[in-house]
Design a protein around this nucleic acid. Structure first.
Length: 594
RNA sequence: GGCCCUGUGGUGUAGCGGUUAACAUGCCACCCUGUCAAGGUGGAGAUCGGCGGUUCGAAUCCGCUCAGGGUCGCCA
């Protein structure tokens, strides 16, 4: 196989018995019995037990010195273990390796943390020594899975006549969207490149160029604060097709994700095929979010009608202020502990709600609620009817503006799912969400803004035209949701210059701004841009779902800490004054010299 | 930028106003020829993230600060 090894440690099997071979790897564990010494030798494929007895004094002397994580090259014979000493827990447990020669390829310091149970080790320490952290077989396994998925994606599109085209990582800054990472230009001092937030414009230009079917595994950069599922640089499956409509793109993407979930999902089941299509407005009504976790129910019911003129002022006044009242029905939880209810109220308050009303219907039909004295029998009867609650169930109600109610109950719904363990870990719940409004009103900026990106196509008719009622125009946008995470999104693009201009003007851009920022695309659209659409889909989040982690750093070889710094390379770092001078940059003296 | 949580031998934790700062694991030495998280005996190893304050006395209480994690803002 190579100069140092004929076969991987982890691949040795009974079929190799009596072979004389070379193996190499790291010392996983060493067990010294005074006489015989056992060394578990680990490589990328697994572990093999090496047995060194005093009879081979040269090897034995070395084996006595050996410590954890030393790098060894061995020459020897594969032997069958006796029946009593076989280890059924190990894939290589039927055999062991008897070395004739041990070659110490490198010694090693004792690692700063155990490589055997590092789940509990401080993450920043693990990141600082990421090259050791990745030695853990399950960490390396994630990288292997990621590779397999990406390579499957590449094959999938290649076989469907797509070509992968690389696009530049030094591009022009556009003030739309997230904050750009900037790279100063030496040749044009005082000017900057931006790292792409996605190859959006470039892939549209590729469509104008006649590529027709393009994809790319593309790195995307956004200089915003981190979250558990968000980092500054992420990898995206970027795809674009010409001469398509929504159904073409969605069908292809759906086919891909079904294949990936089936092949790489570790036996988990896809809850519904074809993926359910949800309308945006409907989604907000039922789940309070545009990326609902469909692994469990707990849908909202609108119970506003019941409380018109109710004695309970919180409810009646919410309605008078044009708000709404919605309920979640939790089956069999009428006896929920007071503490659990209180903490749900806290969750609701954190979302901006005044509170959260709980109404329990006990098994014997009694009402348990802090507001029971305000509720009439008729209201309670109607509540049961509307929410489907029966004796034994618990209702949670929130009242207020549409926005507050949605956000509040969405949080409460998630929290209930966690506490009641409603999320089946063996399920992939995919869904498409469509029917997004094209534009949303930005109160602070006093203008319309694109809900996704300004290049998204739109549906309009006479009543709902851009100029008459922008809020009524739907985008030709589709988002792919998996287990409550947005894992992809795309649209059929605007391919006519005049339409793009209409949208950009509505968004409050002046002609000259438009030309400066979007001039290239506008011009290109004028040169015969075909109908086109595609998706951008997050690879990191997909892998997270496949392995079932909520920490995005688990699926990245060398991730940044959530502060945005790199504990391994100790980046970012100050640079020499020379470098700054070449770039024509001067630092704000108030930043100090650290 | 706001809020919440965490910081004690190498690692993971306990201790929460007076302790020789405890335990596990790792490390080192010795014993041990069939273990596979080997076992046994012994040993080294922490000024309790940093600075300041309160107190007769601070790992413990308070303030500031640093680092990490989460979250809101932000993320077309």
């Amino acid at each position: 196989m190579t100069h140092f090894k004929d076969i991987s440690c982890g691949e040795l099997r009974a079929a190799d018995i009596d072979r004389t071979i070379r193996i190499a790897g790291w010392v996983d564990r060493r067990r010294d019995h005074g006489g015989v010494i056992f060394i578990d030798l680990r490589d990328s494929k697994g572990i093999i037990q090496v047995v060194v007895s005093p009879e081979n004094s040269a090897a034995y002397n070395i084996a006595q010195r050996v410590r954890a994580e030393w790098v060894l090259g061995l020459e020897g014979i594969v032997k069958s273990r006796t029946d009593e000493t076989k280890n059924p827990d190990l894939p290589t447990g039927e055999i062991e390796f008897i070395p004739t020669h041990i070659n110490v390829l490198n010694e090693a310091e004792t690692p700063p943390f155990s490589l055997h149970e590092p789940g509990e080790v401080d993450e920043s320490l693990r990141l600082q020594y990421r090259y050791l952290d990745l030695r853990r077989p399950d960490a390396m396994q994630v990288l292997r899975l990621r590779h397999a998925v990406v390579s499957y994606i590449r094959n999938f599109f290649s076989e469907k006549d797509f070509i992968e085209v690389e696009t530049p990582t030094l591009i022009r800054s556009t003030p739309e969207g997230a904050r750009d990472f900037l790279v100063p230009s030496r040749l044009q001092p005082g000017e900057f490149f931006a790292l792409p937030q996605s190859p959006q414009i470039l892939k549209e230009l590729l469509m104008v160029a006649g590529t027709e079917r393009y994809f790319q595994i593309a790195r995307c950069y956004r200089d915003e604060d981190f979250r558990a599922n968000r980092v500054a640089e992420h990898t995206q499956l970027d795809m674009e097709m010409a001469f398509v409509d929504e159904s073409d793109v969605m069908a292809l993407v759906e086919e891909l994700y079904i294949e990936i979930a089936t092949r790489f999902g570790g036996g988990k089941k896809i809850s519904e095929v074809p993926f359910p299509r949800l309308d945006y407005a409907d989604c907000i009504e039922r789940y309070g979010t545009d990326r609902p976790d469909l692994r469990f129910g707990l849908e909202f019911s609108d119970v506003g009608m019941i409380f018109k003129g109710s004695e309970f002022k919180v409810f009646s006044s919410a309605l008078e202020n044009n708000g709404q009242i919605k309920a979640i029905c939790v089956k069999g939880q009428s006896g929920m502990a007071r503490r659990a209810i209180d903490s749900l109220v806290e969750v609701a308050r954190s979302a901006g709600a005044g509170g959260l009303v709980n109404i329990g219907f006990s098994e014997t039909g009694e009402i348990r609620s802090p507001v029971s004295r305000f509720l009439s029998d008729q209201e309670l009867t109607l509540l049961k009817e509307k929410t489907g609650a029966t004796n034994g169930d618990m209702l949670f109600l929130a009242a207020g503006s549409h926005e507050i109610v949605s956000e509040t109950l969405a949080l409460v719904r998630e929290e209930l799912a966690v506490r009641l363990d409603l999320r089946d870990p063996e399920i992939f719940a995919f869904a498409w969400v469509t029917g997004f409004p094209l534009l949303e009103w930005k109160v602070e900026e006093n203008r319309w803004d694109a809900t996704h990106n300004p290049f998204s196509g739109f549906f309009e008719d006479e009543e709902n035209s851009l100029e008459k009622d922008p809020s009524g125009v739907r985008a030709r946008q589709y988002d792919l949701v998996l287990n409550g995470e947005e894992i992809g999104g795309g649209s059929i693009r605007i391919n006519k210059r005049s339409d793009l201009l209409r949208v950009l003007k509505l968004m409050g851009h002046t002609e000259s701004e438009i030309n400066k920022r979007f001039g290239v695309l506008l011009q290109a659209l004028d040169y015969g841009a075909p109908p086109m659409g595609g998706v951008g889909a997050g690879i990191d989040r997909l892998i997270m779902q496949l392995i079932g982690t909520s920490n995005i750093r688990d699926v990245i070889a060398f991730p940044k800490a959530s502060s945005g710094s790199d504990p391994l390379m100790d980046a970012p770092s100050p640079v020499a004054a020379e470098q700054l001078k070449e770039l024509g940059l001067q630092l704000d003296p108030e930043l100090g010299s650290n």
